[in-house]
Design a protein around this nucleic acid. Structure first.
Lengths: 345, 345
DNA sequence: GTTAGCACTCACTCAAGGAGAGTGCTAATC
DNA sequence: GATTAGCACTCTCCTTGAGTGAGTGCTAAC
């Protein structure tokens, strides 16, 4: 069952040709484009064997061969070599990410943009799942007589704020007291933990007015926590798929696009994937059985984990794409180190 | 050149049929579906006149008639009647918007979602252009020894924050001093004004350390102001266009989608449009000459102006869409009143 | 002014035929 | 025994042409 050296060589050649041209490759054209040292007839015999082993398929009798998912899997696991990015590619990545270094979500969106520009495929970037992030402090600030701002800051630097319209009046002192009170209660606890816990009616030295204020603020507090935990998903380059022969029929294109309109489901699926560069090919995916999906993880502050990804036809340049993603995630992780080297707590 | 009553009736019938079926309508089928009281031959004569006047076109000799942009314009200006939304439609809109009343951007996104769900077209919502918004206060808050949060609050309730990584150390007092200092300098000024002004090196009672801190903060401050001014664009229902016969070819679909991938350009164009419900049909648009575009404006705090919009083929149900948008924008404006009735300054 | 009748036009569908790329098998060759 | 040349066969794709049907435009009658 082991493939011979020559079979591997032929398989690689077929994959190369097919990835390039998106058309079934025949024995004769293969010998033309590659120096394999044997005649088409020999290629045919080998192709026939490879097909029997499940590495190639046949759209119809008189067509050339097409690599199967199994072939791509073999290629990804054994055959492909890491590509080195050119220094201009590296520079483009570095420049684009550096421009927005201190704005987390913007940086991520740029990463997704880069990914789709370089690979000419659809790409996405997700913020980390923040349920393990811990609360650093909570602050309430006045805007006008009926409007306040609620701000929650996590230890990872994750910040969310909401503008609240109150139905009860408030005082500056009331806000400060409640801010401190909430910070004391929740500091150091994970978002997940706080969200799941009962709302604590800490009556300690509460005044009547304060407890009213708390009552108005708590529902929004919980909602904001949830939003803070939510993974944000940025998608880029969806248009690219229109240029890919695989999706040149309107129905295929629609199917492809619909995967992404269900953002929540898509996000959930992506979260389940492992760390590092993960490649899933065709049938290996739960839905999108005619796509390949490559994800890679980056780290924030060495702790929280976010993902970026690329989606395209199974016929894609796995070597290039994985190499770019590796470089990109390393770069992101480096950017997102909060305090260089030191543990900040 | 004035159209007769019968011609208007026929034109309306043709528009109705064509909007419904997306197929050129012939004289015979028109008499079948509408009670016009005349024979197909008469219809043909009238159609011929209408075509001469530019209200109808002919894909080819032996096909039925298709309304021209001019016909839709006439329809929108003269013929169409306002549709009343059913109470269940109204309820759906009210419920969906009420659920997120205090989170501005979320509410807007929901509005766009609603719009595309009801109309089955592509839709968008834009936050107001905030260059006229004035600064209420600025605050700097510590996170850890190298990280602070910069928060800018506008008088309209517009809040933006950024996490900054400092290369210089800071003190709590330094942050507070700088916050106050910046607030005093910028309070009441419009974002536009501040962005355009030179960075003021207010050396008054500045310490050396403070001026260093200011130096690190100012570039991010400016960048954050810019972000705050930026119009956010939420697009929904792009997938809907796959179900529209006009865009059933991959090329047309691609052209359509490409309009939206250029978000900045698109936003700029939309900002130029007038207030209230604005309908532009086919050739009346600068690009997207085969689409119609309907926009409507909502108000925040009676002052800032944002837009929502719908894009589809010129063949669309103008009466329904405009009615829904009118209802929706009224609802949004109502939601976004900060302090009911009273002027808050 | 309206209508019936009829010739004509044009897109669309379907089947048939030819071209081209490729396979699979067999027999000859190295 | 592996490799190769040769050839019949298969299947898609493209083109062509005939047939169909919806619709118009014109003319003559009402």
């Amino acid at each position: 069952m082991e493939l011979s050296e020559r079979q591997l060589q032929i398989l690689q050649a077929i994959i190369d040709d097919y990835v390039e041209n998106a058309e079934p490759v025949g024995s004769r054209s293969l010998t033309k484009h590659h120096d394999l040292g044997v005649s088409p007839a020999t290629i045919r015999n080998e192709m026939s064997d490879l097909e029997e082993m499940g590495y190639l398929t046949h759209p119809h009798t008189s067509a050339g061969r097409v690599p199967s998912d199994k072939a791509y899997r073999l290629y990804v696991n054994e055959l492909m070599k890491k590509k080195n990015l050119t220094s201009s590619e590296k520079k483009a990545i570095n420049d684009r990410l550096a421009a927005s270094r201190d704005e987390f979500d913007t940086t991520l969106r740029h990463a997704a943009e880069l990914l789709s520009e370089i690979t000419h495929l659809a790409s996405f970037a997700m913020t980390p799942a923040a349920n393990e992030d811990t609360i650093s402090f909570i602050r309430l600030m006045p805007v006008d007589e009926r409007t306040i701002i609620l701000m929650i800051v996590g230890d990872s630097g994750n910040v969310t704020n909401t503008t609240l319209r109150l139905t009860v009046p408030y005082t500056q002192e009331g806000l400060e007291l409640l801010s401190k009170n909430m910070t004391v209660n929740y500091k150091g606890r994970t978002l997940d933990d706080v969200l799941k816990s009962e709302i604590i009616e800490d009556v300690g030295d509460d005044l009547e007015a304060l407890s009213q204020l708390r009552g108005s603020v708590m529902p929004s507090f919980m909602r904001t926590l949830e939003d803070m935990m939510n993974v944000h998903l940025y998608m880029e380059g969806m248009m690219n798929i229109f240029n890919i022969p695989e999706y040149s029929s309107i129905d295929r294109a629609r199917d492809f696009m619909e995967l992404f309109s269900r953002k929540d489901e898509f996000t959930r699926q992506m979260l389940e994937r492992g760390d590092g560069v993960v490649v899933t090919i065709g049938e290996e995916n739960d839905n999108m059985k005619d796509c390949s999906l490559i994800t890679a993880t980056y780290h924030v502050d060495g702790k929280l984990v976010g993902k970026i990804g690329v989606i395209g036809p199974t016929r894609m340049k796995y070597d290039e794409v994985t190499s770019i993603m590796e470089y990109l995630t390393n770069n992101l992780s480096e950017s997102f180190k909060l305090t260089d080297g030191k543990d900040k707590r």
